[in-house]
């Protein structure tokens, strides 16, 4: 087998996996704290893609062209506004359902996903939109004819996803906010009795999860250059699969699950058949869960009498 082709396919899998991982972090955080699958998460990612394009065009119309400034301002604004979306959605659609059945917020989330999609379709139109090329350039290893390459923006995605995961793991494990999060996750009532404002903690988690989706949204939009109001659906399901594969509720698990899924898809479609790559991805998920019912890094569920 051609070593360059294999190397390229591994790199393709790694970048795709990092994207899945970045979005999966949002799923896993929300799941970790209130045990709810936030089906609207993919659409929050979609919102952030639109925000990226809008903010970029505003910045360019102001005449700012310095790349780091543009990138940082876009990232900051997109993450802030998307965070506000996360907060508002939690407040409106999920908080009133707290303490009712486990499935009620799930259905509410599906409704919210429809709302977000058609809201964007109505306000922005159904056509697909794009952003201009901001970061251009590739690193190529190898000769003139045979090489393995990765674009700068792909490198940025991989780095950002690892930094994002590391930072959040640090927050959860070492800071006061993290301790409050873990307390809320373990026993919401007890945490409240001990003086933790659990509602605020849950809101914070939604804001952080949404901002991570926005981080992914900005970088991925710059990478592929185009998006429409429907992109949240496919990537949302994939990211959710990645989160479960890695063990839902675990931050490193989300990252690992994303990369495993991305690699599996990339290698399978590269060397076997791209028609059946999703079949393979889901079959892999089923197999992993049969042998490790809590995912790759998830804690096994303890059955208590």
């Amino acid at each position: 087998m051609d070593i360059y082709i294999l190397g390229q396919q591994l790199l393709n899998g790694l970048t795709l996996g990092s994207i899945y991982g970045l979005i999966a972090i949002g799923y896993t955080m929300v799941y970790g704290i209130i045990g709810m699958i936030n089906f609207a998460h993919g659409d929050i990612y979609m919102i952030s893609a639109y925000l990226t394009a809008i903010i970029l065009s505003l910045i360019f119309s102001l005449g700012i062209t310095s790349l780091p400034v543009v990138l940082l301002v876009t990232l900051f604004l997109a993450m802030a506004i998307t965070g506000a979306y996360g907060w508002a959605i939690e407040r409106v659609a999920y908080r009133p359902l707290r303490g009712s059945t486990r499935l009620a917020p799930l259905i509410s989330a599906i409704g919210m996903s429809l709302v977000l999609q058609s809201y964007v379709q109505i306000s922005q139109g159904a056509r697909n939109q794009g952003v201009p090329i901001l970061i251009d350039g590739v690193v190529r290893l190898g000769g003139e004819e045979q090489f393995v390459q990765i674009t700068y923006i792909q490198i940025l995605i991989v780095i950002a996803s690892f930094i994002g995961m590391a930072a959040l793991t640090y927050i959860i494990l070492k800071t006061s906010l993290g301790r409050q999060c873990r307390a809320t996750q373990q026993d919401r009532k007890m945490a409240a009795i001990l003086g933790i404002n659990t509602n605020r903690i849950i809101s914070t988690v939604f804001v952080i999860g949404s901002s991570m989706a926005a981080l992914a949204g900005v970088l991925v939009t710059l990478n592929y250059g185009s998006f429409d109001f429907f992109i949240g659906f496919v990537i949302g399901i994939k990211a959710f699969t990645a989160a479960v594969l890695g063990g839902i509720g675990s931050l490193p698990g989300a990252m690992l699950g994303g990369i495993v899924l991305g690699m599996a898809e990339g290698l399978f479609s590269g060397f076997v058949s791209s028609d059946y790559k999703d079949v393979f991805a889901f079959a892999l998920l089923v197999l992993v869960l049969i042998f490790r019912p809590s995912g790759l890094l998830g804690k096994p569920e303890i059955e208590k009498v």
Binding site: S113, L116, Q117
Partner: peptide, 8 residues
């Protein structure tokens, strides 16, 4: 949009 709102 309305269907989604109704669901929520």
């Amino acid at each position: 949009l309305m269907f989604g709102v109704a669901m929520v």
